[in-house]
Structures are given as structure tokens and as C-alpha cells.
Design a protein around this nucleic acid. Structure first.
Length: 269
DNA sequence: CTCGCCACCTGGGGGC
DNA sequence: TGCCCCCAGGTGGCGA
């Protein structure tokens, strides 16, 4: 699923082409996404896309008197088509911009398309989002403060979007490996030094993934529709039983909060 | 507030 | 070949 890097890569892919464009039409083929696509979404034609930005894993299109908000869920992708192409299975939504089409494909329908005339940051879905990991506001000190008093595992805390946004299962595993921290460590017990290390590792993992052009989910597709993603070389994710790239110890898999966790029992303490 | 867990949905892979 | 089960992913929402 798209984690922050995939969403960021998508945003960068579509922004230059969409900015300043007039929305000329909307096609909702399947309104049953995570939330039923409201009728208001169908009436956004005639507006100009003034700006695009990302908040957590949400993509926000500023349309002047409101915002169109996209979330890619676990299997969504947005692609920009230069010419009309017949929709395929799971192509649930199109935004038409003259000859351009922005198309949402989402086999599992966990994604969302939302219209809001509020300030998007106060929208119920975005209001409680935590700090952006790639900003200066997110550092070891902040992470340390955020985790005080918490008894839950640091991996789950890192994935908790009300504290830090954008870090999903893959990059949580990778960040903890880079920082040398065992994923089950209680968040509240991490020293400041370890929080500094983890914040830096998280930034590095996310930045590297963005640089690599997104990630890795098999069905993730960039905004130009290029399926061949530079598959990233994971250090621990999905490598159960394989040797740690650092020390050779077999990578271990364990379930935390109904989610697979991968770690090196020797490098991560 | 925190925590643990369920639900939502579909395609792909493995086992038989 | 077909069938069945399990799994992946993000996150809102529930009850304790």
C-alpha cells in the first residue's frame, strides 16, 4: 500500500500537469469506496485546481471554494492519461481536465474521494493527524515527547497516524532496523538518544524511498502508469528466514497488532 | 486518554 | 484444474 513515499511520488507526478487546470468533468463509476463518494464530488466541474499538496497519506486539491481529497487506501493508484482510454476493472473514478484524465484505480476500494468546503486541515479525517515525518518539526526530541507514558510497542506507535503520519508497515519495519531498535520495545521506554536515532532513520528510509520512485507494493503504479517500479531492496520487510544484510542472522517474523513485523534479533535490541 | 481488536475488500499464492 | 483458505495493506471505530 501506498505509504507516504508512494503518495508523495504520486503527488509530484501529477502536480505540474494539474496545477492551474480547469476541471471539465467527473466520472464516478463505482461510488462504494471506503466511504460512498458523495454527490457533491460529481459537481466539482468548472473549478480550477489552484494548488496540490499532501497531508499524511491524503492528497489535497485546492479548488478555491473547497478541496477534493484523495486517499489511496491500500491498493489505490492515481494516473494521468494523455488521452481517453477505456476504463478497466477497478477504475472507479475519473477527473477530467480537458484532454487530460486523472484516473483512480483501487481494486480493494479502501481508498477515498471526498469533497469538503471546510479548511481541509479541520476536516474530521485530517484533524487528528500527527506530525509530518519529513519536516523539521519531527526530530528525536519530538518523538521522545510523543512517546512518553506509552506502553504500546514502538512499531505500532510509529504507525499511529495520530502521532506521526505516513509511516506504514513496510517503512516502520525498515526504520526500526536502521535505528537498531527491537520493534516490540515499549515506546515510553525509549531513551532520548534512541528517539534521535529513530527519527533520523525514519526520515532516511522515507527519503530514500521517495528518491527510488515510490515503493514496492506489487500493485502500486506511478502517476504515469509505469508499472515497473524500481523495486527497493528491503533490509528486513518480507525477508523472514533470510540472512540479515548486516550480520547474517536469519530475519525473524512476528505478529504485532495483527500485522507482520520483521526484524533482526541480533541487530535490533 | 490508551490499548487491543475488528471490519472493510479483492486478488494472488499455496496447499490439497 | 479447481477449490478453499490465508494473507497483504490503512485506518476508523468499537469496547474495555
Amino acid at each position: 500500500m501506498p505509504e507516504l513515499p508512494e503518495v508523495e511520488v504520486t503527488l509530484r507526478g501529477i502536480s505540474p500537469q494539474l496545477k492551474g487546470r480547469l476541471i471539465t468533468g467527473v466520472v464516478v463509476r463505482e461510488p462504494r469506496l471506503r466511504w460512498r463518494v458523495q454527490d457533491a464530488v460529481g459537481r466539482v466541474a468548472g473549478r480550477e485546481i489552484r494548488a496540490l499538496r499532501r497531508r499524511g497519506k491524503y492528497i489535497l486539491l485546492d479548488c478555491g471554494d473547497g478541496h477534493l481529497i484523495f486517499h489511496l487506501g491500500m491498493s489505490g493508484s492515481l494516473r494521468l492519461l494523455e488521452q481517453a482510454t477505456p476504463p478497466q476493472k477497478h477504475d472507479h473514478f475519473d477527473l477530467q481536465l480537458g484532454e487530460l484524465t486523472l484516473r483512480l484505480r483501487d481494486p480493494r476500494r479502501f481508498g477515498a474521494v471526498i469533497w469538503t468546503d471546510q479548511s481541509p486541515d479541520t476536516h474530521p479525517l485530517l484533524r487528528h493527524l500527527g506530525v509530518e515525518p519529513l519536516t523539521r518539526a519531527f526530530d528525536g526530541r519530538r518523538l521522545h515527547a510523543l512517546t512518553r507514558g506509552l506502553r504500546s510497542a514502538i512499531k505500532q506507535t510509529l504507525m499511529d497516524s495520530s502521532r506521526v503520519v505516513g509511516v506504514g508497515n513496510i517503512y516502520a519495519n525498515e526504520s526500526l532496523f536502521l535505528a537498531g531498535i527491537h520493534p516490540a520495545t515499549r515506546a515510553g521506554r525509549l531513551s532520548l538518544a534512541r528517539c534521535i536515532s529513530l527519527a533520523a532513520a525514519t526520515k532516511k528510509v522515507l527519503r530514500d524511498a521517495i528518491r527510488a520512485g515510490g515503493s514496492s507494493l506489487r500493485d502500486f503504479v506511478g502517476s504515469d502508469g509505469r508499472p515497473g517500479y524500481f523495486q527497493q531492496r528491503y533490509r528486513v520487510y518480507d525477508r523472514a528466514g533470510e540472512p540479515c544484510r548486516c550480520c547474517g542472522t536469519p530475519i525473524r517474523r512476528q505478529v504485532q497488532g495483527q500485522r507482520a513485523t520483521f526484524y533482526c534479533p541480533s541487530c535490533q535490541r
